[in-house]
Design a binder for these strands. Sequence first.
RNA 1: GGUCCCAUAGCUCAGCUGGAUAGAGCACAGGUUUUCUAAACCUGCGGCCCUUGGUUCGAAUCCAAGUGGGACUACCA
Length: 594
Amino acid sequence: MIKAEDLLFNTVQKALSELYSISTNTVTFQKTRKEFEGDLTLVTFPYIKEAKKSPEVLGQQIGEYLKKNNNDVLSFNVVKGFLNISLTNSFWLNYLNTIKNLSSIGFQKENSTKRTIMLEYSSPNTNKPLHLGHVRNNLLGYSVAQILKACGHKVIKTNIVNDRGIHICKSMLAWRKFGNGETPETAHMKGDHLVGKYYVEFDRAYKKEISDLVQSGKTKEEAEKQAPLILEAQKMLQQWEAGNEEVVNLWKIMNGWVYEGFDKTYKNMGVDFDKMYYESNTYLLGKEMVREGLVKGVFYKKENGSVAIDLTKDGLDEKVVLRSDGTSVYITQDLGTAIERFKEFPDLKQLIYTVGNEQDYHFKVLFLILDKLGYSWAKECYHLSYGMVELPEGKMKSREGTVVDADELIEEMYNTAKVTTEELGKVEGFANEELDELYKMVSMGALKYFILKVDPKKKMLFDPKESIDFNGHTGPFIQYTHARIKSVLRKAGTEYGNVTNSEIVPNPIERELIKWLYDFEAAVSEAGKSYSPAVVANYVYELTKLYNRFYHDHSILKEEIETIKNFRLQLSKTVAQVISNAMSLLGILVPEKM
RNA sequence: GGUCCCAUAGCUCAGCUGGAUAGAGCACAGGUUUUCUAAACCUGCGGCCCUUGGUUCGAAUCCAAGUGGGACUACCA
C-alpha cells in the first residue's frame, strides 16, 4: 500500500539535509486541520533553530523543494510554523482505485506477523448467570481479538471457566435442599438462571442462620464460620475434591445446565472461543512450579510451612504462593496455567488476560513472579484491564444487589429495536425472519457500540435510557448509513463503470472522504497497539458522519455527469466496505437495509 | 502505610507519540423532505481542559506536588 507519509518523508529528509544540513530520522506529519487548505502538515518549528531561518521562510523553502522534487505534491501554503501540503488528485484517486474492490481494506493477512497470541476473556463462574460486567468483558475480549487478527496476528481465543469451588457448592447444596428435583425444563428457566436462583437461595438461608446465631449470643464473625449451611458446603467441596460420586454427578448435571444457558447468551452476544479451559482440570497446576521456584531460591518457606515470595523490593508486598497445608492459592494455578499454555502452544508469543481492573494488582504480581522464575515471555504478558460498569444509582456488583442481567438486557434492547423500527414505519418489505435478524443486529449494534466506544481502562456509566438510544453517536447511526449506501448501490445496478482519474476533480468533501478511508489502516494498527476498540469505534463514527454530510449535500444517482456519478458510486461503495470492516472489528454486523 | 487508575460543556464521551481558534452525541431553542432511506442534515446555546508549579518556540496532552473520586494491597476466587 502506498503511504503518503513515506513518500513525503524521504523528500523532507533530503530537503532538510540539502538546504540546511540537518539530519534527522524523525519527520512526523499530521493531518491538516480542516480550517486550512492541505492534506498533510509538517510542523517546522523544531527546525528553525538549527536552520537559522524564520518559520515562514523555512516553510516556504521546504515547500518549494517538495513541489519540485515530489510528483505527488500539488501545492503548499505556510501559516507560521505550519507547512500545509496538498497532494495531487491523482494520488488520492489512485488510492481509491487500489482499494475500491478489496473486501479486506485495512486488514493485514492473518498470521502475516507470525505472532501467535492467546487472548483469554469471559471466564465466568458457573454459579450464576452473566451480568453487565461480563458483557463488557465479552465484548471487549472478542473485539480486541478481532482487531489483533486484523493487525496480522494469529489469535487463539480462550475461556477459562471457573467451574469449581465453594461458590459452586453453595448452589448445589441449596438445590439439593430446596430444589425438589427442579430442572430447567420443569422450571421453564434457562439453566444458568436456575442455578443462579439456588445460589441466591443459599445466601438467603445462610444469612438467616447467621442472624439466628447472633441472636443466640454469637459474634457475627463466629456465626459466619459456624452456620450449619456453610459447614455443609465446605464438606461438599471436600467430597468433590475426593471424587465422591454423588457430589460429582450433581456437579456435572448442574454445570451442564449452566453451560447450556451460557451458550445461548454467548450466541446472542456473538462471541465465541477457540479453546475452553476448566478450572476443575487446572486448579492443581502450579505446585511443581512452586517446588522449582524453591530450588531456584525465588520462593522461600515460612515458619508455618507456607511458601511465599518477597516482592517488597519491587514496591509490592509479600505474596503467599502455597498454603501451609500444601494446597494452592489462586495465583498458584494462574502461574501453572500460564506455563502450561506456553508448553502446549510452542508458537505462543503473548498471553492476554481480559479481566477487570480490580485485579490490576494480581496481574502485576503474577507477571512479576513469572519474570523472576525466568520465563522470558513474562514481559509479553498483558492484562487487558477494564473499568467497572456503573449504574446511575450505584455500582455494578453482584453482592450489592443492583445487577443488570445480560439476558434481560439483550431482550430489552431487542424489544426497543422492534418498537422503534415499527414506529418509524420501516417494516414494509421485510419477511418475518428478516425483521428478527434486523432487530438482533440493531439492538446488539447499539449495545456493543455503546460499550466499546469508551476507552476500556475507564470506568463507564451505563444509563439504560441512553444505551438504548438509536440516534446520534450510536451503533444504529452507523448501521443506518451503511444501509443507505447499500440502497443506493442496489438502485444503481451492478454496472457502474470505473473511475478514470484524469477526468475527475473530487470536491472538498469527497477528497476528505478518501483521506478518511486512507486513515483506516492506521486506526486499526493504533487500536491493536493500544488494545482499544474505542479507537476503531470513534474512527468509524467520524467517517460515517462525514459521509452523511456528503450524502445530504450531493446527489449520487441524479448526478448527470457520468464519470462523477460513477466516482461517487465507487466512493460510496468503498465507504460502505470500510464501515462494514470497522464494525466487524467491534463484533457488530451491518444490515443491507433498515 | 504501599501500588495503580480516573478528573475536559448540564449529562455521556473523543481529543494517541506536545502544535494552529479544545471537539462530538444527548439535552435545550430553532430550521431542512415534490429530489438516492429524515434512525439523516444544518444553525444556535453551552468550557478557569481539577489546582499550583516545572520543562519550551508552544502544554488539555509531558514531569512534580496537591485536591477530589475509585480499585487493589487474603493461607478468597
